[in-house]
Amino acid sequence: MTTLTAVGLPPATGRAGFGGALRSEWTKIRSVRSTVWTLLATAIVTIGISTLFAWGSSGHTDIQDVPTFDPVRSAMFGIVFGQLVIVVIGAMTMSSEYATGMIRTSLTSMPRRGVVFGAKLSVFTGVALVTGLFCSFTSFFIGQAFFAKVSVHDFRGPVGAKGPGPAGHPVITIHDLSTTIGAPHVLQAVIGGGLYLAVSGLLAFGLAALLRHTAGAITAAIGVLFVTFIMAQFLPSDWAKHVDKWVPFFAGGQLWGLRKLGDGSIPMLSPWTGFAVFAAYAAAVIVAGAVLFKKRDA
């Protein structure tokens, strides 16, 4: 038992704090395979679906849609599905501690719970931002490559001197509908796509701190992000004009396109106001989660 004497342990200096907790949380998040797989899945789903959608648009866009064509939102369409995957990472970052019982070990080694929560939140925010921005920028550039040559279909019959196309067949012309990152509002919208994904993940992180249950948190996050959006489609229009702008997807979604979401008949929030509302939803859930994280028996 003489080996118990700690040979490699230098005398303590200072006080264990946020820096150590950050390093610890980074070790935690990078050292489990599920993080790597779900990050990869977020990228594949977001970029993959964006690419498919852009490819489809470039092969067939109706001439009536050309004036309202949004080359940024159309390039990042996969975000709608990517948000459903990034919530899994957000939820698991927190809930896996409870699912495995690791939380008791974590809080014994660092009983200052605010430090643990803050470090976990910071590390996940970093990971989610990098993932989100990687997805939005990659999707954007792939999309512009497709949008440089869009087959625009015209079913309207006679156009100019050319006369109508063969019966039932459109006149097809090739248009360049792409934009560049330097064009007005484009950079903001592409960054907005990354932010939207990151905040979706953070919402799930907060829900997991509240519910301490992986499946519960994921279900709740999908409910907030996706189900509210679907339900909004069925609202009578006099309700919709008051409610829709507050729906998380509509509020947060304004930022990552050049044109407003929705069909234009219903008032929507401006890009940054909408995003602030979306972020406030996530913040409220995270604050509630933090309070319970500090108070509850682990």
Partner: peptide, 22 residues
């Protein structure tokens, strides 16, 4: 009370880091 997906080394490392242990 450990995350089974983490190696023994990483499990101990993430604990050590919280207290600035080498």
């Amino acid at each position: 009370a450990i995350h089974g997906g983490r190696s023994a080394y990483n499990h101990l490392l993430c604990l050590a880091q919280t207290n600035d242990l080498p």
